[in-house]
Simulated assay, not measured.
Amino acid sequence: MNIERLSLDQLRVFVQVADSGSFLAAARNLARAQSAISYAVATLESQLDVQLFDRSGYRPQLTDAGIALLQDARQVLDQVDSLQNRASSYSKGQELEVALAVDVFFPTDCLVDLLRRFRDAFPAVTVRLDIEALGGVAERVIDGRAMLGILGTLPTTPPNLLRVTLPSVRMVAVVAPGHALAGIRGRIPEKLLLQQTQLVLSDRSELTTRQDFSVHSRLTWRMSDVGTKHALLRAGMGWGYMPQHVVRDDLAAGRLVRVSTPQHPPQGMDLPIQCVYKPDHRAGPALSWWLDALAGLTTLDRLSQQDAAN
């Protein structure tokens, strides 16, 4: 077996014969002589030391080895085609990868829709996505780990970043219906909030470490994952602020109830969302797509108008 002498052309001929069902049909599809197709397959079989087709019948049939190796051949050709497409795109100034850092409060549905549209527009560009809270997003943009960031939970924008204002996210204070704060009408006095456990997001970055935002209780439980915070809220383990799009179903079903704090009314408050990037970062076609797509958003939540009315 001399696999080093295999050519991509031989693999393409092999796949074409298998897909076409005959050497003649493959020759027509590839615009070649049938003898050239037969020679390419025979040479490939010799180099692999394996018979790929059974030629005893009217039409060539894949052998067991041919069936197994056909999948490998397809994978090799797919990878080569991907390499060629990515290299061609890069030579034209297109990025090979886009690195994004996104705030935990940015709506997942909106993010998925953006990623789907980006994939359709740039199928050869890979995406590296980090989900962070507080200073984590800005820190990744500043140190170059992310080309673009979407800030939410960080109340201020670092002065060395350019920004694009996006639609806001509605934040509400919520507790489980059996929680001690659930039955209080009107704004909850500050002294009562100080006595109850508040569930808050922790900051894994150095940018805003040891800084607290919208923390009112003496007793806090901190976590970096919104899903964990959500589950603890529903379990009655404390109170906290959450994006309305995350707890909408829980509020409708009565698994969570809104409360009013001295800082937030029952209907909630809007959290500003911003897209940030470094001014010295060259924006290729892929990154430019993200800047344009984010700037063109008029809402982050398909039910935002309904929420505003409730």
Score class of each variant (00 low, 15 high):
V50M: 12
A65M: 11
A231T: 13
R117N: 15
D113A: 15
P167G: 09
Y241Q: 03
P159H: 07
F53A: 03
M171R: 00
E190M: 12
D225L: 08
V137D: 04
L287H: 01
T220Q: 13
S224E: 12
M223S: 14
M1R: 11
D64T: 11
S46H: 09
T197K: 10
Y277L: 11
L294M: 10
T228C: 03
Y58P: 02
A99L: 03
G268N: 09
P155N: 07
L194E: 15
R128Y: 05
E190D: 13
S260G: 06
N310V: 08
I150S: 06
T63V: 09
D72V: 05
Q61M: 09
G178E: 05
Q305T: 10
V98H: 00
S91T: 09
D301G: 02
H245K: 00
D249N: 10
R248Q: 12
A18P: 02
S217H: 03
V172W: 03
V141T: 03
L77K: 06
R74Q: 14
V257A: 09
D270N: 11
K229E: 11
L303S: 07
S89F: 05
Y241D: 08
T156L: 14
L194S: 10
T157V: 15
D72S: 13
C110M: 14
A42Q: 12
T153Q: 06
Q47V: 01
F118S: 06
S88Y: 04
L201V: 05
P272R: 03
V164G: 01
S7P: 01
Q51A: 11
R32L: 15
Q61S: 12
R55K: 15
L303P: 00
R185V: 10
D103Y: 00
L77H: 02
L11A: 08
D19Y: 00
Q61E: 14
R128G: 13
G135M: 02
V169H: 02
L134H: 01
Q195K: 13
F14D: 06
Q263A: 15
G254E: 07
L154P: 03
S202F: 00
I188F: 06
L201N: 05
L294P: 06
L96H: 00
A31H: 12
V50N: 01
R210H: 12
V80C: 09
A31Y: 09
M237K: 13
V125H: 04
P262D: 11
L192E: 14
V127R: 10
L30N: 06
T156G: 01
P265H: 03
L83F: 06
T153S: 15
L148P: 03
L8S: 10
